[in-house]
Amino acid sequence: MSTTPTMQSRLKLNRPSLRKLARPPKQRTPLGTDFNAANLPVALALQHCRDCGSVQYPPRELCRQCLGDALVWRATAGSGSLVSRVELHHSLWEYFKRRLAEKPWPVASVRLDCGVIVFAHLALQTFDSEAPGTLAADTAVQVFTHTDCSLNAVMIAVAASTPTASRSQRHAIAAGLGLLEPAIKPEGI
């Protein structure tokens, strides 16, 4: 019996850098998978409290305002403003490491008008400026979710004027970020 396949599968499991295909982080908590499911049919769904109306993010078991057990997923407007933004030149995850090798990965912190702070992949191509450092704090943005190639819903922030009403428009922006395809290393396992 050859030991090669065993060694190969071991390396594939334990050494992400040797894999042919690298994808964004797959892991979520059970609430995170609820977020994924709730976001399939709409541009952005967040937990709302049926009792006090407050909006929650990141996903919670109970309402952060009233501690009530009456959270429901509702379609939510994605309008907001930039709190801060960075360009990642280094990552702990193989998928991003490969993307970073081409150009830095921009991430934004956004305050949505509904009152929550979200981290989002920043679609720089929708803004006039090139580098995140030149985007002023409080710049108006729009946030929506799209399913990435790890089958998780992820937040994407675009310039406020960007048309995102249709699924195909949102799909094109997510594709432009490279989120819909794994990062490929042709000689990998």
Partner: peptide, 29 residues
């Protein structure tokens, strides 16, 4: 990657920068 539930759901997937990313946000602002 496993620091907390909020990290798993809402920060690590966004570039997996670890603490560097959150502190860079603060530094920039």
């Amino acid at each position: 990657a496993n620091f907390s539930n909020f990290t798993i759901d809402a920060s690590f997937p966004y570039g997996a920068g670890g603490p560097n990313a959150a502190f860079a946000m603060i530094t920039q602002r």
